[in-house]
Nucleic acid binder design. Structure first.
Lengths: 243, 243
DNA sequence: TCAATAAGTGTATATCGTACATTAACATTC
DNA sequence: GAATGTTAATGTACGATATACACTTATTGA
């Protein structure tokens, strides 16, 4: 049994029930966002057992005793999607006493953005139950997962306006209309096409490719690619992404 | 021993060492910010015992088995400062395997803003070791607390430009120069006085009082008060604080 | 009464956001 | 192959906002 950390009032009390303080389980849960060109979607698990049998749940797992939380989340993501190196950021920790009916489990919530085309279900123990759900079609969810999802969506909505992370949801090559539509569905707003395009291009973050759309029955749009190195360079000079 | 949550791959493996998953300690640590009219300061504890004896540490404590994390943080804050109802927000959770030498402890970090004049050291077990330190004078800190502090300061710097939380650090009644100086020290910038004042007043968030400074040997400044209700009302109509 | 000091106001210019009109390039249809 | 439908892409005028900076006002203390 580990000793009590001694920087707290507790240690000065010579507390006799120290073991009780080391009885927590810690899990990670990861809200995985994707975009198929039309809807913003979340990757959810359908539960096969009680409690909350049949409910949708955010994928997650208990953190192993010798495992970092971030590492645990990457493990979950790889088991689930086959992907590593996807955008991953800690969201918030949910630690209410009664949030989990089977024990005291605090969960560190993360959210992840990935290119939905890269996703391939894996033959892991749960991948068969994984499904993409449009975020406007969500019903009840297991545990406090609806609350976690809401926090994740809110965070995404503010972050996507301040950092160029929207590109994580798009294919490598995209049109400005693709980008605009992503932002519009994500933020529930509409942008003026001309102004949106001017604003984005003025940031100088996109590389214009010598390619256009094919087989569309209207003027084909030019394809662009996001330039992360350029963003890094500009950031150091005080540039601030904003939409 | 609690049962294993059954929404993870682990349960399907019928893992024999379930108890090992429920061996975590969870602590809360709270970065407390204050402002004395000149410097932005943090309330720190000087450690009296090993490890890290003599180092500065962020106040915190282990979460009790039947206690919410947020509640635990409020308890710590009250023991430390005598205050309740101060601004308190979850920052981020730090859960590296080796962050604590005496056991596996994940810490949920919070940060808090309070009016430094309201603070009164408490006869609790640690209040005697508490001291306000200007944030530019910080030396080494115990554990990973420097990393936690840096994350808290960064968060504060971005948040203070997007939400009207700076007022939490000022006395109830303040001058526009006070407000400007707070923002300037917090963000390491300078604002044009006339423009700063125009921008703030245009937001219509301040109540101009019929009071002025006393005993200054120049033209006395008018005192203002922040109006939270007004902010709420404007927010609902789409108003967005920005500095 | 004057000097020093910081509060508080006014204004001209540049920059940016917004609305909306116009032209361009492709596929399909007649 | 000309006309039509559709979306891409550009241009412009106007209003709002940001910025820089000069000016006036109110107090204390000499």
């Amino acid at each position: 049994m580990p000793a009590l950390p001694d920087y707290s009032p507790v240690d000065t009390l010579n507390h006799p029930d120290i073991a009780e303080y080391f009885s927590f389980g810690i899990s990670v849960d990861c809200v995985v966002f994707g975009y198929d060109g039309k809807d913003v979607k979340v990757l959810l698990i359908e539960r096969g057992t009680d409690p909350y049998r049949g409910y949708q749940a955010i994928p997650g797992d208990l953190v192993h005793p010798r495992e970092d939380a971030f590492t645990a989340t990457q493990r979950v993501l790889r088991d689930l999607t086959g992907l590593k190196d996807v955008y991953l950021e800690q969201l918030q920790t949910f630690a209410s006493v009664n949030r989990h009916p089977l024990g005291r489990v605090a969960t560190i919530a993360y959210y992840s953005l990935l290119k939905i085309g890269d996703y391939n279900p894996r033959p892991s123990s749960w991948a068969t139950a994984a499904q993409w759900t449009p975020i406007q079609d969500l019903g009840d969810m297991a545990f406090d997962h609806k609350e976690i999802f809401n926090a994740a969506l809110e965070r995404l909505q503010t972050k996507v306006r301040q950092k160029p992370i929207g590109f994580e949801l798009l294919p490598e090559e995209f049109t400005l209309a693709d980008l605009q539509h992503l932002y519009e569905t994500l933020l529930n707003t509409e942008f003026d096409k001309a102004n949106f395009r001017k604003k984005i291009l003025a940031m100088d973050l996109l590389i214009a490719l010598d390619k256009t759309q094919k087989a569309v029955r209207h003027r084909p749009a030019r394809l662009y690619r996001f330039d992360p190195a350029r963003y890094e360079a500009l950031s150091k000079r005080g540039f601030h992404f904003e939409l």
